[in-house]
Amino acid sequence: MIAGLYIDGNSALHRAAAGLKVLALVLLGTGVFLIPDWPVLAVLLVTVFILYPASGFGPRILWAQIRPILWLLALFFAVQLWLNDWQAGLVVIFRLAAIVSFAGLVTLTTRTSDMLAALERAMKPLARFGVNPEKVSLAFSMVLRFIPVIAQIGHEIRDAQRARGLDKSVLALVVPLIIRTLKTADDVADAIDARSFDPD
């Protein structure tokens, strides 16, 4: 199975319900756009930063969240400085930094399986619109199950094409990969039916 980006711990955030954390993220993501003052946003950003050590994460982990968007923050600031003023620049980058670091925190403190379970619960009411939660749950699990299987198929095809001197051709990889995936899918569907999966 694919390991998520979760880092084990026992903080309040680790223990909080996955659904609650996602809700908090949505509220924060909406809330920051309602706040037009950079000092308030700065306080908010520092609060999110403080949650990192409070959840048992060192500065290195916080930095890993911010680093990928650093050039973006610099760009945004420059654009705002050019179009408006430095205060507007700070508003834009504090907003984004706060959301991204809180989103990172949610991802770091929540197991993917808990997130999936929360999602399945959230989908229950959709059943009346024809969304079958069992089918959706099966689909999610199968993606995780079949990533290593398909990656293995990809390796086998690449080796075979390399032996034929076709390793530079993307098409010589993609077409057999798709065909074998579809063939696999037919067999998997048979196996699922044979195990009497029948949620209707």
Partner: peptide
């Protein structure tokens, strides 16, 4: 009538062992 196929990779549908065994039982 249970059915076991040639390639186990195509009939294990859950990423964790116990989840896969539980799959049929849930039904």
């Amino acid at each position: 009538v249970g059915f076991v196929f040639q390639n186990p990779d195509n009939q294990i549908v859950y990423p964790v062992v116990e989840e896969d065994i539980a799959f049929g039982l849930k039904a």
